[in-house]
Computed example of a mutant assay.
Amino acid sequence: MKNFETGCLYLLILLNLFTRGFAGVSHIVRRYSVPEDHFLFLCCDSDPDNPNMEWRNGAGQVIASKKGAAVSYLNQNKYHISDGYLQIKDLERADAGEYYCNGHLEAEVEVLTGQTFYISEGRTLLIPCESDKKQVWSFRKERSPRRVNIFTVFRNGTIIRMRDDPQGRFVPYHKALEIVRLELEDSGKYMCNSNVVARLTVIKGEADGGCKDLI
Rank of each mutant, 00 (worst) to 15 (best):
S138C: 04
R31K: 11
D90F: 11
F4Y: 13
D83R: 15
L12I: 08
G210H: 12
V180W: 07
A107F: 07
I150V: 11
L11T: 15
F117G: 03
R56D: 06
E92H: 10
V197G: 02
G114E: 05
C43L: 12
L214A: 02
V202L: 07
S144N: 14
A198P: 12
L125R: 13
V136F: 15
L15M: 12
H174P: 13
S138I: 00
G60R: 08
T152M: 07
Q76M: 08
T6E: 15
G209C: 02
Y10V: 06
N75E: 10
N3P: 09
G7Y: 13
L177N: 01
R155S: 03
D208P: 11
R31G: 03
E183W: 02
A176T: 00
I159A: 03
R143A: 04
P166T: 02
Q87S: 06
Q61R: 12
L105I: 09
Y85D: 01
A70F: 08
K141Q: 12
G157R: 15
Y73L: 08
R146Q: 13
F117C: 05
E178Y: 09
V202I: 04
K212S: 01
Q76G: 00
Q167A: 03
G68Y: 03
G21L: 09
G7A: 10
L200Q: 07
I81L: 15
N193V: 02
D186C: 06
R199D: 03
R163M: 02
